[in-house]
Design a protein around this nucleic acid. Structure first.
Lengths: 203, 203
DNA sequence: TTATAAACGGAGGACTATACTCCGTTTAAT
DNA sequence: ATTAAACGGAGTATAGTCCTCCGTTTATAA
């Protein structure tokens, strides 16, 4: 594989991740190609159909998230630190894209990434619960859903920098809210958790 | 104005709010009309151009939010309770839509709603800070941005009910994270606040 | 350097979705 | 019962998207 081809392929996948997160669904081919700075034909050469592109998007962000998760587990000194660091890295990596493309995919044959990603996430959550950084009731699904939430752009015309800064700040506060015993006397849970088994299995 | 006309106008605005939140931008006219259950001509009769429709969307959600905010201030017994209740009501009301349509509008002549909404929000935030439910550093802008975040759909094919339940649960955790002194020893702020003066002025 | 296979870009045609109008029909209100 | 107001939806123009074809450029190795 030629060097420019590999470079272009990377650009295309990265662009596709961004566009998927922005539109929250099928990205337009023309938009992806333009964002990647390549001709439309180049996109078709690398990804003859939309399925393969979406597949590449899923694998890409899962790989990034897995690497970040493992690094966090190894390097951090507490479960809480590790999970927080992972979440910040995951939203920068665009992890939420995987859940957006999931329902658009015909075949979900990336068992490797899927299992690795959910394994890492579950270890992180367990560790965070262990050291009290998250309450007993917190699940891996909750964390995956949070990653999706904080990945998506606010769509109010912010610069990429502002967008990112706001997401991280909000995530930090969300994370602080995960701790076990509720601090505020006036706090009561208002809504029951929902069945998210389908979503859980995808991240 | 005839009764059916008024009824249809309401349906159209409500539908427009929903669609704006879903697509995170300009809603397609056909989609809005269909969602509202009216013919496309009816939509054009009430809103000859997109600007007027978007304007109506902004005024509508602001009015809802103002009413909810005042009710919360009057009826709740603590600042924390009031702000939490307001936030839950605001995301149900679709408050985030106002920030999405804001950059799409030519004229922003709804000073009445704008001032009332930001006034209510600031009183709520001040009250919450007063009784320790939110840290000193929390601003009205933070809260407005949170409302936008939790209003937007996750775009992973959930039912409206699941979508709503998840948003409320995540919001509760975010709100818990607003409390003054950080509980977790491993917590440190990771990102500086950004300049959001433009956004602040819109809600 | 040069040869060449591989990769590239973008114009262009088919197709789909969206914007907006026109006009015959229905309905609220007197 | 009358009628002015409001309605619905077919229909046309326009814009956006999909995808192919082919002439040009570029990486790589002789």
């Amino acid at each position: 594989m030629r060097a420019d081809a590999r470079r272009n392929r990377r650009s295309i996948v990265n662009a596709a991740v961004e566009v998927v997160l922005e539109v929250g669904g099928e990205p337009s081919r023309d938009t992806v190609a333009e964002r990647a700075g390549v001709g439309i034909a180049t996109l078709y050469r690398h990804f003859p159909d939309q399925q393969r592109l979406l597949h590449a998007v899923a694998v890409e962000v899962l790989d990034r998230a897995i690497a970040e998760g493992r690094a966090a587990l190894e390097e951090e000194t507490s479960g809480g630190r590790a999970l927080r660091r992972y979440l910040h890295a995951a939203i920068d990596a665009g992890l939420g894209a995987v859940n957006i493309v999931y329902p658009l995919l015909d075949d979900h044959d990336w068992p490797e990434q899927r299992d690795a990603a959910s394994g890492v996430l579950e270890r992180l959550v367990a560790a965070a619960i262990d050291d009290g950084a998250a309450g007993e009731e917190v699940t891996a699904t909750d964390i995956a859903l949070a990653a999706i939430r904080f990945c998506r752009p606010l769509a109010i015309g912010l610069t990429a920098d502002d967008e990112r800064a706001i997401a991280h700040q909000q995530l930090d506060r969300y994370f602080d809210g995960l701790a076990a015993q509720r601090r505020q006397p006036d706090t009561q849970p208002r809504h029951l958790p929902v069945d998210t088994s389908r979503t859980r299995s995808s991240a």
